[in-house]
Structures are given as structure tokens and as C-alpha cells.
Write a protein that binds this DNA or RNA. Structure first.
Lengths: 231, 231
DNA sequence: ACCTGAACACCGTTCAAGT
DNA sequence: ACCTGAACACCGTTCAAGT
């Protein structure tokens, strides 16, 4: 199976204040009433909780506790739980794009492998961060009408996939169809693969996940190549 | 867009008891203390709530209220909220399989269209029942260790998809690869297409959803055909 | 055997009050 | 401008008690 990716996701801010303790005199000026950057601290805490306890542990109160502030403090930075989740999802999308970018840059002059590398990076990220991935595509943030942060995230992913497809087209390995249409289809396949695997629905049908991803990528590439050769 | 499918999903049991009212004397023997089939009534209520209020409205207490019983009554039939959601998901899978079966039987002697019909039926169902679909693939029921009802549901879907692929193979339109491996890949594409569309991520990239599904099916079929012609 | 009522711990959210 | 504390409505879950 894939290993945990080392991404700049968990900052380990750990600004946990000693709660309750009776004689906790503020030594120096270390314990300011104002936090400084509570928004970032809350997001960092949220990611830790998500990783440790899963999606049902991600409550506003738990996040506030982990950041060492009162239960109502988050409301100065997030209008409600959905907005907090949107912030988490946005961080997830940024991290995923970085992972794909890194994988993409590792294979600069191999158009045949471009899309395969993107696919591997994408699936790897999803399986390494199951709870985060579910938040990114969960029902809470599906309607982006009041979530401007998430309005354009999809374009980022689509950009990488269609870039891989464009390289294949330039190398003559994929026909001259609309790269965006092919990109959505490819994204769908990768997204479905991650989700069904997280749901345990791919257990046993393939010898291994790598084999399944291999087969999926092969089908996609042949399919997109075939679209031109049969025109 | 697709229209709402008329499936035997919502039984309209509507056994709502007049709650609270002061002088509500039991006329006849219509108000039995024991419900009869509370489990089914609860599931029916759950589906109604899911359709009307979405996934966040699906609470055990709301379901109990809708069925006209006390808040603790459901616990005789479902160990906890997860088990209730598993029951809902199981109904969803059964309804989806019926929809695919109906679509499949409508095209008995057209192997070229078999997979396309399955794909249309699948995507149609998902988009017509967004909240239900999300429950079926949500994190709550992902771990089926203690949800025996959902243990084999994936096989049902895979059966229909691989049946469509087998017909294509018999007609010589798809190469001799492992139909189950191809089926999971196809399922992934369809699942991803539904999820990304529910998330609004396919807005604008394709002229229409039908066009996108058309393109995806074409790519899949070409891809699976190409696997043999290039061996 | 099946359902009710009260209770507990927890959560989202609000709002007056503190610094 | 930013955070706290108390409060309200709601939820999951339990358990003694009712029929």
C-alpha cells in the first residue's frame, strides 16, 4: 500500500494553554489574552483532530479546546461549522495540488508518464488522508455559494489532469478531443477509485491497489487515444 | 437534466400519531401501544426526511418523531445511529439495483448498449437521490465490520456492470481482460461522475451532463476494447 | 417483547460582558 | 478588535419504569 506523504499539512502549532490549573500565573508576557493568529491555530487543530479521530471528531468545540480557547472564540473567525470545514477543505486542496506538482516536476520530459504520475499522486494523497479527503468532497461543503474559498478548487485539480492530457496530445498519444472533457472523466475515475477504496469496495477484486490503478490508467489512456484513431 | 425516478422507495407509511393534544381519547383500537412494524416505519420516515431535509436532518430523534414514537423507541430496532443509516443505505442499494435491472431488461438484445444503459441508470439514480446516495457511500457506513447488511452490496453493483462488460466481450467489442477489474474501473468512473456532479465540480466543463456521460462511456468502452487490440 | 420518560453528556450557536 | 461565560435548543444514548 501507499505510504503517508510528508506534506506541509501539520504545522504542529500546539498552542495549547494549560486549562483549569489553579495557580497558573502568567510568566513573562507569554499568555496574551489575544491569540495572535487564532484562525491558523484553529485550522491546524482541526487537521490534527481530523487525522486522529476522524470526521465525527471534528466539532467546533473540540477544535476550540485543542487550540486552548473558549468554545465561542472560533466564531470570531468562522461564521459556523461549515465555514470551518471549508477552511479545512481549502487547505486540503492546496496540499493536494502541491503533492501533484511535486510528482509532476519529478518527470519533466516523459509525456507518456505524466498522467500516470498525476494519477498516482492523486490517489496516494486521498488514501493517505482519508478523513481530510472526505471533508474536501463531503456534503457540508458541496454548495459553494457562500464558500468563496472553495469556488475555484476544482479548477486546480482539473488543471493538473488536463496538463497531463495535453502532454499526451503533444506526444501524439492522445487524440485531439477537448482536454477538459477528458480531464473531468479522468478525475471522475480517480475520485471514484479513491472513494470506493476508502469504502472498502475494491477489496478482493484486484490483486492490489497498484494493479487496479494501473488498469484504470491504461483504460483511460487507450480510451482517449481511441477517440481519435476511430474518428 | 434527469427526472426523478419512480421507485418503490417511499412507502408513505405515514403512521404519524397526534402528539401532545390534550383530549385525544383512543377511538376504536386504532392506537395500539405496540407499533407492529416499527423498523420498517422508521426506515420509511428516514427516507422521507433524507429527501426533504437532506443528510443533516437525518437524526434518530427526528426519525422517531416522524414515525410518531418516543425518542428511545428506535433503540429496540437499531443499536445506534450508524445502524439506522446502514438500513437506509441497504434500501438505497436495493432500489438502485432494481433501477439498473429495469434499464437492463429494457435492452435485451443490444450488447452495444448494455453498458451504456447501466451507466445511465446508475448516474440517474445518484442524481435523483443525492442525499440517499451520499448516505450509501458516506463515512458512517464505510466500515462494514459490524454492518452485515452492507457487506455484499458492492457486489450487486459490480455484478450489473460486469454483466454489461461480459455482453460486450461476447459481441467482440471488448477484449478478453478480467471483467471484474474492468468493472471496478467503470464503477469508479460512474461513482466519481455522480459525486463530482453533486459537488458542482462538473458545472461548465461539459455542454451538458449527458454529453459528459457520453464521453466517459465512450472512453471507457474504447479503453477496454483497446486492451485487446494492442496486446 | 416493545415502548415511554427522565436523565446525562455533548454539540452548535448566541449574546451580554470582560480586556 | 478579540475573547469569555452563561444560556438555549438540540442530539445520541442509557435505563428504570410502564403495558
Amino acid at each position: 500500500m501507499f505510504t503517508m506523504s510528508t506534506l506541509p499539512l501539520f504545522h504542529m502549532t500546539s498552542s495549547r494553554r494549560p486549562r483549569g490549573g489553579g495557580a497558573s500565573a502568567p510568566r513573562g508576557r507569554s499568555r496574551a489574552y489575544h491569540h495572535g493568529d487564532l484562525r491558523s491555530a484553529l485550522l491546524a487543530s482541526a487537521l490534527e483532530i481530523l487525522q486522529r479521530e476522524g470526521i465525527e471528531g471534528l466539532t467546533l468545540r473540540a477544535v476550540a479546546r485543542a487550540a486552548g480557547v473558549s468554545q465561542s472564540a472560533p466564531y470570531r473567525h468562522f461564521a459556523d461549522r461549515r465555514q470551518l470545514m471549508a477552511g479545512v477543505a481549502a487547505q486540503g486542496f492546496r496540499a493536494m495540488e502541491q503533492a501533484m506538482l511535486a510528482e509532476m516536476q519529478r518527470t519533466p520530459d516523459a509525456p507518456r508518464l505524466g498522467l500516470k504520475m498525476v494519477a498516482v499522486a492523486y490517489v496516494k494523497f486521498g488514501l493517505a488522508n482519508p478523513a481530510l479527503y472526505r471533508v474536501m468532497f463531503g456534503p457540508e461543503v458541496a454548495n459553494t455559494e457562500d464558500l468563496p474559498e472553495l469556488r475555484e478548487t476544482g479548477r486546480g485539480v482539473l488543471g493538473f489532469v488536463s496538463e497531463g492530457i495535453r502532454r499526451l496530445q503533444e506526444a501524439g498519444l492522445v487524440g485531439p478531443g477537448d482536454p477538459w472533457l477528458m480531464a473531468v472523466t479522468t478525475w471522475s475515475t480517480l475520485h471514484g477509485l479513491v472513494m470506493l477504496t476508502l469504502d472498502g469496495q475494491t477489496h478482493g477484486v484486484a490483486p492490489s491497489l497498484e494493479a487496479l490503478l494501473d488498469e484504470a490508467t491504461r483504460i483511460m489512456m487507450f480510451g482517449m487515444a481511441g477517440r481519435s484513431s476511430s474518428a
